[in-house]
Structure formats: structure tokens, C-alpha cells
Amino acid sequence: MTHPNPMQLFDISGDEIDRVLNTFYSRIRQHPELGPIFNGHVGETDAEWDKHIALIARFWRGAILREPGYDGNPMRAHMQAGNVFSEHFDPWLALFEEVVSEILPPQTARPWIALAHRIGRGLRLGVEDLHRPATKAPSLS
């Protein structure tokens, strides 16, 4: 497959992004640790989740396909949530890797997983900074 957009990061279609996100968030909703957090912020109804998934799809389409349309601030959203902590990122990323690897071929899954880890590291650092006592130095590991 060739990139329809030369600025696109790797070969993936918008439909593939949507399929991954729909599967991923259906599992998040049921996840014993992450489900209650997400359901508390997103809502419990399919309509609320559809709206959230559409927002996240715009984020990923912008990040990967370089499509315009996402105007949110993921760092602010995660920091303002109040109940998102550093320890939530590992199970989120593990579930994301699982879904991406199930749905996409390896040559597409690998770069998306790597991008998710890079973004996740930044979000985790922001959340850790928010919750760190002022007297404690940041961990750079």
C-alpha cells in the first residue's frame, strides 16, 4: 500500500483506525480497572461512547494520517481528570497493543504501538508531575 498522503506516518486507513478504536473502547468499557474510570468520564451510554470514540479517532487520524479536525488537548484532559494516575498507563497500553496486534498486520501494528507508547510516556509524565508532592523530585526513569 502506498501512502495516499505523503505526510502520513505509516500505511493505515481511516477505516482500520476506526475498527481498532471501536474494539479497543468496547474492551475498555468492560475492563475491571480502567472501565470505571473511563465510564465515569465518558459516560455509560453508547451515544456518549460514540462521541468519545469519534473524538479519539480524530486525534489518531491527525497524528497518523495528518488529517485536520482534532482540536483537543490530551495532556490537559488527562491531567484534569483527577483520577488518572501513572499506574493506569501500563494496562491501557497493554490492552491497546493487544487489540492493534489482533486487528492489524504487524507492519501496521508495530508503528502504531510505538507511537502510542511515545504519546503515553508524555501523558504519564504530565500526570505524574500533577500528582507529585511539591517536595519530591521528578523521576526521569
Rank of each mutant, 00 (worst) to 15 (best):
Met1Cys: 04
Pro4Ala: 07
Pro6Trp: 00
Pro6Cys: 00
Met7Ala: 13
Gln8Pro: 08
Phe10Glu: 08
Phe10Val: 06
Ser13Gly: 14
Ser13Met: 03
Ser13Pro: 04
Gly14His: 13
Ile17Met: 13
Asp18Thr: 12
Leu21Asn: 08
Asn22Ile: 05
Asn22Lys: 15
Asn22His: 11
Asn22Leu: 11
Phe24Ala: 07
Arg27Trp: 01
Gln30Ala: 13
His31Asp: 14
Pro32Trp: 04
Glu33Ala: 14
Gly35Ala: 09
Gly35Lys: 05
Ile37Lys: 07
Phe38Lys: 08
Asn39Met: 09
Gly40Lys: 06
His41Gln: 12
Val42Cys: 04
Gly43Ile: 03
Gly43Glu: 07
Glu44Ile: 05
Ala47Gln: 08
Ala47Pro: 00
Glu48Pro: 00
Asp50Asn: 15
Asp50Pro: 00
Asp50Ile: 00
Lys51Cys: 00
His52Thr: 01
Ile53His: 00
Ala54His: 04
Ala54Met: 01
Ala54Trp: 01
Leu55Ile: 03
Leu55Asp: 11
Leu55Thr: 15
Arg58Gly: 00
Arg58Gln: 10
Trp60Lys: 01
Arg61Glu: 02
Gly62Thr: 02
Ile64Cys: 01
Ile64Arg: 02
Ile64Thr: 04
Ile64Lys: 05
Ile64Phe: 03
Leu65Gly: 02
Leu65Ser: 05
Arg66Trp: 00
Arg66Leu: 00
Glu67Asn: 05
Pro68Asn: 13
Pro68Leu: 02
Gly69Pro: 06
Gly69Leu: 03
Tyr70Lys: 02
Tyr70Trp: 05
Met75Asp: 02
Met75Val: 12
Arg76Leu: 14
Ala77Leu: 11
His78Gln: 10
Met79Ala: 12
Gln80Ala: 12
Ala81Leu: 03
Ala81Phe: 04
Asn83Asp: 14
Asn83Trp: 09
Asn83Phe: 07
Val84Arg: 14
Val84Glu: 07
Phe85Gln: 12
Phe85Pro: 01
Ser86Asp: 12
His88Tyr: 10
Phe89Pro: 09
Phe89Trp: 12
Asp90Thr: 13
Asp90Cys: 01
Asp90Trp: 06
Pro91Glu: 09
Trp92His: 05
Ala94Met: 11
Leu95Val: 07
Glu97Trp: 00
Val99Asn: 10
Val99Pro: 06
Val100Leu: 10
Val100Tyr: 11
Ser101Tyr: 01
Ile103Ser: 05
Gln107Arg: 15
Gln107Ser: 13
Thr108Ser: 14
Ala109Thr: 04
Ala109Met: 11
Arg110His: 11
Arg110Val: 09
Pro111Asp: 12
Trp112Ser: 10
Ile113Ser: 05
Ala114Lys: 15
Ala116Phe: 03
Ala116His: 04
His117Arg: 15
His117Ala: 08
Arg118Leu: 06
Arg118Cys: 02
Arg118Asn: 12
Arg118Tyr: 01
Arg118Val: 03
Arg121Leu: 09
Leu123Lys: 10
Arg124Cys: 09
Leu125Trp: 08
Gly126Phe: 07
Gly126Met: 12
Val127Gly: 07
Glu128Met: 15
Asp129Phe: 13
Asp129Trp: 13
Leu130Phe: 15
Leu130Lys: 13
His131Phe: 08
Arg132Asn: 10
Ala134Glu: 14
Ala134Leu: 09
Ala134Cys: 03
Thr135Asn: 12
Lys136Ser: 08
Ala137Ser: 13
Pro138Trp: 09
Leu140Gln: 08
Leu140Cys: 03
Ser141Arg: 14
Ser141Met: 12
Ser141Asn: 10
